Simulated scan of single mutants.
Amino acid sequence: MPTDSTTAVPAVTPGWLAPHPAPSTPTLELPAGTVDAHCHVFGPGDRFPFAPERKYTPCDAGRDRLESLHEQLGIARRVVVQATCHGADNSAMVDAVRSAAGRARGVATVRPDIGDAELAALHEAGVRGVRFNFVKRLVDAAPTDELARIAARIAPMGWHVVVYFEAADLPDLEDFFATLPVPLVIDHMGRPDVTRDPDGPEFDRFLRFADRNRCWVKVSCSERLSVTGPAALDGERHAYADVVPFARRVVEEFGDRVLWGTDWPHPNLTDHMPDDGLLVDHVAHVAGTADLRRRLLVDNPMALYWPEESA
């Protein structure tokens, strides 16, 4: 739970990069009602302490700064995903969702012993999903039996499960994912290796898994997946070009189940901190028509997170 302002804040993990100090204004005009379907808040640590079991300690990146960034970029709504540094204490995420007065939804981290009253309180606050993290450098081994019990608990509430994993681990996880009795949302296109062929067997396997299980897929985290990095292509605002063929396949094959997010404030990056205005412009290369962009940025996230408004 939040603590008073005298709480000592631990030192930031060495090498941690703070969010971009002055993001550019994008040249792409986003459609009205655009949703950032994947962003986080960190702290502030003096109000929302980080979890003792965390794998990293970030700098503060709270809701006020997130809201300011979204205003600059032209983003109307957001989905705040619980960060691993806060563990199963969802206080910072819930605070960010509540402060948006209906323009935000949340994705929580919960433990199997969570009570019905706490689940109901999260739902009332705007939470609509639970995240299962399988990235080994961020969490200890995920207990699938416990996660299955959580999924069964949230199914009657109409929630979904967000799964975060790396491409190489999908063969070991896909049978478990297929048993979950709730919709699945996949973070960051399943983290493909973008040095490989976007039409090759590894990415094909991912796409067929997503199609077979009617998954939603987030076209996000280009700055994390890219090897070529933020360098402009042909002098244009077209960074992270090596990710485009993968993201374009997802957008074209999952037009009604694809989502987009900034991943602000971009945790665990060590080589560069992306310009969020450039990430918005990147969308034009991933979704090449106004119709595709509207589905990616507005229609799909509204259908998943605000179905009562999109019916």
Results as ranks from 00 to 15, higher is better:
155 A>D: 06
171 P>K: 04
165 F>S: 01
135 V>H: 02
120 A>C: 04
147 L>Y: 11
130 V>G: 05
129 G>K: 00
147 L>I: 02
165 F>Y: 05
166 E>L: 06
164 Y>L: 05
158 G>C: 07
178 A>Q: 15
138 L>G: 04
125 A>F: 10
171 P>Y: 00
182 V>G: 08
150 I>L: 06
120 A>P: 08
163 V>F: 00
169 D>T: 05
168 A>E: 06
182 V>F: 03
167 A>N: 07
136 K>L: 04
179 T>N: 00
171 P>R: 04
141 A>D: 06
177 F>K: 06
142 A>F: 15
151 A>L: 06
149 R>G: 04
134 F>H: 07
131 R>L: 09
137 R>P: 03
134 F>A: 08
143 P>M: 13
123 H>Y: 14
133 N>G: 12
145 D>W: 01
122 L>R: 04
143 P>Q: 15
157 M>R: 15
160 H>I: 01
155 A>N: 02
150 I>H: 00
146 E>W: 04
182 V>T: 08
169 D>F: 10
160 H>N: 01
172 D>W: 02
128 R>G: 12
174 E>G: 04
157 M>I: 15
164 Y>K: 09
121 A>G: 07
156 P>T: 12
181 P>L: 03
137 R>C: 05
147 L>T: 00
174 E>Q: 07
179 T>Y: 08
123 H>I: 15
138 L>C: 06
169 D>M: 03
132 F>E: 07
143 P>R: 13
137 R>Q: 11
134 F>K: 02
141 A>N: 08
137 R>M: 11
121 A>Y: 11
172 D>V: 07
138 L>K: 06
149 R>W: 00
133 N>P: 12
162 V>I: 11
128 R>C: 09
149 R>K: 11
127 V>E: 05
166 E>F: 04
142 A>L: 15
145 D>C: 05
139 V>G: 03
125 A>K: 09
178 A>D: 13
161 V>R: 05
128 R>Q: 04
127 V>R: 04
125 A>W: 11
168 A>G: 14
146 E>G: 10
162 V>H: 11
151 A>F: 05
144 T>H: 14
166 E>P: 00
130 V>N: 02
141 A>Y: 09
137 R>W: 08
140 D>F: 06
131 R>F: 12
128 R>H: 10
168 A>R: 10
135 V>I: 13
181 P>Y: 12
146 E>R: 02
131 R>G: 07
143 P>C: 15
155 A>Y: 09
143 P>S: 14
176 F>Y: 14
